[in-house]
Amino acid sequence: MPDRNLPNWRSILFVPVLNEKFVAGAPNRDADCIQLDLEDAIPPDQKQQARDHVADVADRLADAGCDVIVRINRPWCMAMADMQACVRPSVLALTLPKVPGPGHVRAIAETLDEIEQNMGLENGHTRLIAMVETAEALSQMEQIARASDRVIGLIVGAEDLAVSMGMKPTHQSLLLPNLQAVAAARAAGCMPLGFVGSVADYSDMAAYGDLISEARSLGFTGAFAIHPSQVPVLNKQFAPSQEEVDAARALIASFEQGIKEGRGAISHNGKMVDLPVVEQAQAILSAHEQFAS
């Protein structure tokens, strides 16, 4: 599994590039990453205007300390224009909507090689997040994630996938595709992003918090947010609680004492503990250190 030097993005907040109010407020939202949107948030007759603004907006947000990425458009004619406008030092990654298969990712990556060279950027500077939103792509998720070392994240687009599959975007219908995405992302060494539900539903924040808590238990590490109110929930739920950290430290200490006594498995708080359980505890401490720094 390749080491792709993954970022720690629990919350990736969408910001329409042409909405100056949202852009100005973005650095104060505490999101781990700001995602400028050139796709669904921009009407067709404003696409070029958005491209003309994206460089300045990305630079301003990066100067304010934000990690900045951009979701580009899917049709090739628009995607090419978007990439020409977006590739720059302040843009860390591009999100690719409706990825049909690994060939699309490889073509994007090859195009980025050329643009980065022309811009004087280090090859591979611009990373990729792939969105699986069609029935065609479902069976190719691992190939998509492995298509380029630029790919750092994989996410299922619930609403578009539901349309493609002819299904309703319910918890039941979305569970299997999301579990497949976690497995594909983990196998390829990139971030599994998302949760089992629709990103558009933020009216019930208690229910949203439950979905994100479930997502972390399923192996997801972060998710997109379309509203600032979702950011604190994502940041909290995708990071270990102090209770989890304390329990992990106690478990590891007990295990290490058992090792000193010549035991490879121990009983801790009435449960059997062996190496895989310890590795889970170590992962909790590692995540805690990442988000505490």
Rank of each mutant, 00 (worst) to 15 (best):
P2G: 00
N5L: 14
P7C: 10
N8Q: 13
L13A: 05
P16I: 05
V17K: 02
E20F: 00
G25L: 03
R29D: 15
R29H: 13
D30T: 13
D30F: 11
L36I: 10
L36V: 07
L36T: 02
D40E: 11
A41E: 11
I42R: 01
Q46I: 06
D52T: 13
H53C: 12
A55R: 11
D56A: 09
V57K: 03
A58K: 01
D63M: 08
D67M: 05
V70W: 03
R74Y: 04
P75D: 15
W76I: 06
A79R: 05
M83V: 11
V87D: 14
V87A: 12
R88S: 15
P89N: 15
K98L: 12
P100Y: 09
G101F: 08
G103Y: 15
I108D: 05
A109Y: 08
E110H: 15
E114H: 15
I115Q: 11
E116W: 06
Q117T: 09
N118D: 08
G120W: 09
L121G: 03
E122S: 12
H125L: 01
T126W: 08
I129Q: 01
V132I: 05
T134S: 06
E136I: 01
Q140F: 05
Q143W: 03
R146D: 10
S148E: 04
S148F: 08
S148D: 08
D149C: 00
V151P: 08
G153L: 05
L154V: 06
D160V: 01
D160F: 02
V163T: 14
V163L: 08
P169A: 09
L174K: 13
L176D: 07
L179Y: 08
A183G: 10
A187W: 06
G189Y: 06
C190T: 06
C190I: 03
L193Y: 14
L193W: 05
G194Y: 04
F195T: 09
G197Y: 12
S198C: 15
V199S: 05
S203R: 11
I212W: 02
S213A: 14
A215L: 00
R216I: 11
F220Q: 07
T221K: 07
G222V: 09
A223F: 11
A225Q: 11
I226W: 00
H227F: 02
P232S: 04
Q237F: 00
F238Q: 13
S241G: 07
Q242A: 10
E244G: 03
V245T: 12
D246P: 12
R249G: 14
A250V: 00
I252G: 14
G258L: 14
E261N: 01
A265Y: 06
S267T: 13
H268M: 01
G270I: 00
K271N: 12
M272E: 03
M272S: 07
M272V: 07
M272I: 06
D274L: 02
L275E: 00
L275G: 00
V278P: 09
Q280L: 12
Q280T: 04
Q282M: 03
A283P: 01
S286L: 11
F291I: 10
F291V: 00
